[in-house]
């Protein structure tokens, strides 16, 4: 199986995000960057699938030269090779999915695994756009029935179940009020949710090996995609702050406040 996994560079989820006073963006100083956590889950699932079914995991990222760090991270986890679409400047979903479509047409994977959302822009769109552009089936918010504390998880069993004939994949999805199961014909698009797996750490030998793994460089021009964005971020602002409240001494004091002051009970 050939699995293509996307890897976006995002701010570390632990970082404190502040808006610049002029509203043109966020303060970059002091920020650390990581692979989008959902994409790391995607890399892990890809690795488990090829451990079971053979094949290779190809990781792709779009961005300036700094995104090579995230590609190296995925390679250190065990991905086999990387594709870097070199582009600086804003992109929207139409642009990103357009570029990924060309990469997919070139690589012809059996499955593309993306994160359900980037934790910076929080759009939750790219996988679905890509599925439509390719005319493929989609299974978003992939999860599993077993918990992250289960035996299956400890044994790194892939949660995505490929059919015996290798032509389909079964995906359990996190949806409102429960879990839905879909069966997609391959090739298909899968987007990851948090409970799909617990990604492995990159080992020291993994990190060493990653240094010599190939990263192929492409550009929007080479791929023939116009990436002029159709989304303009006009202004950013800090959300209205919530006033810190008070600490109450005991439960009767709390109930008194809730009843007489907040009037919610």
């Amino acid at each position: 199986m050939k699995i293509l996994v996307t890897a976006k560079r995002v701010e570390d989820p632990e970082s404190k995000i502040k808006v610049k006073p002029d509203g043109s963006g966020i303060v970059q100083e002091g920020l650390k960057y990581k692979i989008n956590p959902f994409d790391e889950i995607g890399v892990e699932e890809g690795l488990r699938l090829v451990a079971k079914h053979q094949g290779e995991v190809v990781v792709v990222s779009i961005g300036g030269k700094e995104v090579q760090e995230q590609l190296r991270h995925a390679l250190a986890m065990g991905a086999h090779r990387a594709v870097w679409v070199n582009h600086t400047g804003p992109l929207d979903q139409l642009g990103i999915a357009g570029l990924l479509q060309k990469v997919v047409e070139k690589e012809k994977p059996d499955m593309v695994i993306l994160g359900k959302q980037s934790i910076d822009d929080d759009q939750n769109q790219v996988g679905q756009y890509l599925a439509e552009f390719l005319g493929w089936g989609q299974a978003t918010f992939a999860s599993k029935v077993e918990s992250l504390e289960s035996e299956q998880e400890k044994n790194k069993v892939p949660a995505l179940v490929v059919g015996a004939d290798g032509k389909t994949v079964r995906v359990v999805r996190e949806v409102d009020n429960g879990l839905a199961t879909l069966e997609c014909q391959l090739p298909a698009i899968v987007t990851t949710d948090l409970r799909l797996n617990q990604p492995r750490y990159a080992s020291l030998p993994g990190i060493m090996k990653a240094k010599s793994k190939p990263i192929e460089e492409l550009t929007p021009a080479k791929l023939g995609v116009d990436v002029t964005p159709a989304i303009q971020v006009l202004k950013m602002s800090a959300p209205p702050a919530r006033k810190a409240g008070i600490k109450v001494a005991d439960v009767p004091a709390l109930v008194e406040k809730l009843h007489n002051e907040a009037k919610v009970v």
Binding site: I26, I119, D122, I231, Q232, L234, K235, S237, P239
Partner: peptide, 20 residues
Amino acid sequence: VTFSRPMWAGNVFAEVKLTT
């Protein structure tokens, strides 16, 4: 008409314009 939406886990509110 522009749209107001959250980014970065609601740490940022962005005013966005869609041009399609």
